Measured scan of single mutants.
Amino acid sequence: MTYKLILNGKTLKGETTTEAVDAATAEKVFKQYANDNGVDGEWTYDDATKAFTVTE
Rank of each mutant, 00 (worst) to 15 (best):
T2M: 12
F52T: 00
D46R: 03
D36R: 10
K31D: 01
A51K: 09
A26Y: 01
A48V: 13
A48W: 07
T55C: 06
N35G: 08
A24E: 11
G9T: 15
L5K: 01
E27I: 09
W43M: 04
A23S: 09
G38N: 10
A51Q: 14
I6N: 04
M1N: 13
G41V: 02
L7S: 03
T25Q: 12
E27Q: 11
T11C: 15
A26L: 01
M1Q: 14
E19Q: 14
G9F: 14
I6G: 02
T16N: 05
K28T: 08
T17R: 07
T55K: 06
K13E: 05
K28E: 08
L7I: 15
D40N: 13
A48I: 12
G14H: 11
W43Q: 01
K13D: 05
N35A: 15
D47V: 10
G9Q: 04
A48P: 06
G41W: 06
N35F: 15
K13F: 10
M1F: 15
D46F: 04
K10M: 13
Y33A: 03
K10I: 14
E42W: 13
A51D: 03
I6F: 11
T53H: 05
Y45D: 01
E56H: 07
T17E: 09
E56T: 08
T44I: 08
A48D: 11
T53V: 06
E27K: 10
D36Y: 08
L12Q: 08
D46E: 05
T44M: 09
V29K: 08
D36T: 08
G41R: 01
V29Q: 08
V54I: 11
Y45R: 01
F52Q: 00
G41I: 02
E15T: 13
A51I: 15
G41Y: 03
A26T: 00
T44V: 10
K31Q: 07
D22L: 04
K28P: 03
A34N: 02
T11F: 14
D36I: 10
A23P: 09
W43A: 01
D47T: 09
Y45L: 02
F30M: 02
N8C: 13
F30H: 00
G38R: 06
K50Q: 10
D40W: 15
D47W: 09
N37F: 14
E19G: 05
G38H: 09
K10E: 08
F30L: 05
D47K: 09
K4I: 13
Y45N: 00
Q32E: 09
D40C: 14
T55R: 06
K31E: 04
Q32P: 02
A24M: 11
T55P: 01
T49V: 07
D47Q: 10
Y45E: 00
A26M: 02
T55M: 07
D22R: 03
V39R: 02
K31L: 08
D22A: 04
K4S: 06
T18C: 15
F52I: 01
A51G: 04
K13N: 08
G14E: 10
W43C: 02
N35H: 15
T55H: 07
E19S: 11
E42K: 10
Y45P: 00
K31G: 03
T18P: 01
T16K: 11
I6V: 08
D36M: 12
A48Q: 11
E42C: 12
K50F: 09
F30P: 00
E27V: 06
A26D: 00
Y33W: 14
G14F: 14
G41F: 03
T17C: 11
T25D: 09
T17Q: 09
F52P: 00
D40E: 13
V29G: 04
D46W: 03
K28M: 13
A26R: 00
K10T: 11
E15N: 06
F30Q: 00
T18F: 11
K10H: 12
Y45H: 01
T16S: 08
D40F: 15
Y45A: 01
E56C: 07
Y33H: 04
T44Q: 09
K31V: 06
Y45V: 01
T16P: 03
T17W: 14
L5F: 05
K50E: 02
D22G: 04
K13Q: 12
T55I: 09
E27Y: 15
E27C: 14
V21I: 13
Y3K: 02
G14I: 15
A26H: 00
T2E: 08
A20V: 04
D36V: 09
K4Q: 05
T25L: 06
T18A: 07
T49W: 06
T2G: 04
T2H: 07
K13I: 09
F52L: 01
K31I: 07
E27S: 06
A20I: 03
T16A: 10
A23I: 10
T49I: 09
V29S: 05
F52C: 01
T2F: 09
A23M: 12
F30R: 00
V21S: 11
G9W: 06
G14M: 14
K31N: 04
Y3W: 07
T25C: 06
Y3D: 02
T55N: 09
M1H: 14
T17V: 08
Y33N: 02
L7Y: 10
L12M: 13
F52W: 10
T25K: 05
A23T: 08
A34D: 00
V21R: 12
D47N: 09
D46H: 05
V21D: 10
D40M: 13
Y45S: 01
T2V: 13
T17K: 07
I6L: 06
N8R: 12
Q32R: 11
T18H: 07
A48M: 11
L5I: 03
Y33T: 03
E56N: 05
F30C: 00
E19I: 15
T53Q: 05
A51V: 15
N37Y: 13
A26V: 02
G9H: 06
A23C: 12
D22S: 07
E19A: 08
T44C: 08
T16E: 06
V54N: 01
L7T: 04
K4P: 02
T2A: 06
N37V: 15
T44P: 00
A24H: 09
Y45I: 01
N35K: 15
T17I: 09
T53K: 06
I6A: 03
G38V: 04
D46S: 05
I6Y: 13
A34T: 06
L5D: 02
L7D: 01
T49A: 12
A34G: 03
E42F: 13
L12T: 09
A34H: 01
E42R: 09
D47R: 08
G14R: 11
K13C: 13
T25A: 14
G41P: 01
D40A: 12
V39F: 12
G41T: 01
A34I: 06
D36C: 09
T25G: 08
Y45C: 00
V29C: 08
E15S: 11
D22M: 03
Y33V: 05
L7E: 02
V54P: 00
K4N: 04
L12E: 05
K10C: 13
T2W: 12
D46Y: 04
K28F: 09
D46L: 04
T11G: 08
G41Q: 02
G38D: 07
A23W: 14
I6T: 05
N37D: 03
E56V: 09
G14W: 15
V54K: 01
A26E: 00
T18Q: 05
K4V: 10
T17H: 10
G9M: 14
A23L: 10
T18Y: 12
A51C: 15
G9I: 08
K28H: 08
N35I: 15
T55Q: 06
K4R: 12
K4M: 08
K28R: 13
F52S: 00
D36Q: 11
A34V: 09
F30E: 00
D40P: 04
M1P: 08
F30D: 00
N8I: 14
E27G: 06
T25E: 13
E42S: 11
V29N: 05
K50N: 07
A48H: 10
K4G: 03
L12H: 11
G14P: 05
Q32H: 06
G9R: 04
W43R: 00
G41L: 03
T49S: 11
I6H: 06
I6K: 05
L5P: 02
T55W: 09
